[in-house]
């Protein structure tokens, strides 16, 4: 895969640029500030872990970065597009082409087989030969024998591997992962995170991950700590993964 080199060659702007991001939600009686003045940049090919306590605002941040939601104030620029200015459908289009996701609860469609789950984003993005690409990826994640199993017939680790295959299927420029090992035991979690990091490296994808798992966070090139909605940039500045 040399797409990464192509991209980095042609475009040296950051993959993600966030400035002064603030997010508030209105409750019945008052307004709750979830994120306050977050600014950051993530370069292409970088891997970044967002860490923080429960309720610190990291999942909200992930949702805003991925364009699943729009911020109250501030801008998010994803791969050159200011997503807060895009309509919901334009954001969906952007996601289909450039973004992949891995979730804590796998989020596979229960009625589709492993193969079909992986094919789905390919078809939505209108790519050619979706089945072949899906097979390759499933084989890559070690599930070549289980193409036609439905999620219910797979273990949690296997389901997350299908989800990872799906996330890389459409050759995303950036991958968002929300607690990818949160629902797995240590050993399975270890195997899944190995797979995620390996694939990420192979494909040259930018990775943004929310996690509680310190080991996993340490494997990312950079860690962003978030506390009470504010970014507390750690002492270690960004750098490539070691």
């Amino acid at each position: 895969m040399n797409q990464m080199t192509d991209l980095t060659k042609t475009d040296s702007s950051p993959m993600l640029r966030v400035s002064d991001l603030t997010h508030r939600v209105s409750l019945e009686t008052d307004t709750l500030t979830i994120l306050q003045g977050v600014s950051l940049e993530i370069n292409r090919g970088e891997s970044v872990a967002i860490v923080g306590r429960s309720g610190s605002g990291k999942t909200t941040l992930l949702g805003l970065l991925a364009g699943l939601d729009t911020p109250t104030e501030g801008t998010v620029e994803l791969d050159g597009s200011v997503i807060s200015k895009l309509s919901e459908d334009e954001r969906a289009k952007l996601r289909a082409r450039r973004v992949g996701f891995v979730f804590q609860s796998f989020q596979l469609l229960p009625a589709l087989t492993a193969l079909e789950n992986v094919m789905l984003p390919l078809e939505l993005a209108g790519m050619e030969a979706p089945e072949q690409r899906a097979r390759e990826l499933l084989e890559r994640v070690g599930l070549g024998e289980r193409l036609n199993h439905t999620p219910r017939q797979l273990s949690g680790g296997e389901q997350q591997r299908v989800a990872i295959a799906r996330a890389f299927a459409s050759d995303p420029a950036i991958l968002f992962a929300d607690e990818p090992t949160g629902n797995l035991d240590n050993r399975t979690g270890q195997a899944v995170s190995d797979l995620l990091m390996d694939l990420n490296r192979e494909q040259g994808t930018t990775l943004v991950m929310v996690t509680h798992d310190e080991h996993l966070a340490e494997r990312c090139g950079r860690q962003l700590h978030i506390e009470a909605g504010m970014l507390t940039e750690p002492d270690l500045a960004g750098g490539p993964a070691h």
């Binding site: 991925a66 699943l68 919901e88 459908d89 969906a92 289009k93 952007l94 996601r95 289909a96 082409r97 973004v99 996701f101 989020q107 469609l109 789905l120 984003p121 939505l124 993005a125």
Partner: peptide, 16 residues
């Protein structure tokens, strides 16, 4: 609702 949220995340528009 979960399926729709996922499909949207994977890039399907509301019209879709």
């Amino acid at each position: 609702r979960d399926t729709v949220a996922l499909l949207k995340t994977l890039g399907l528009s509301s019209r879709g």
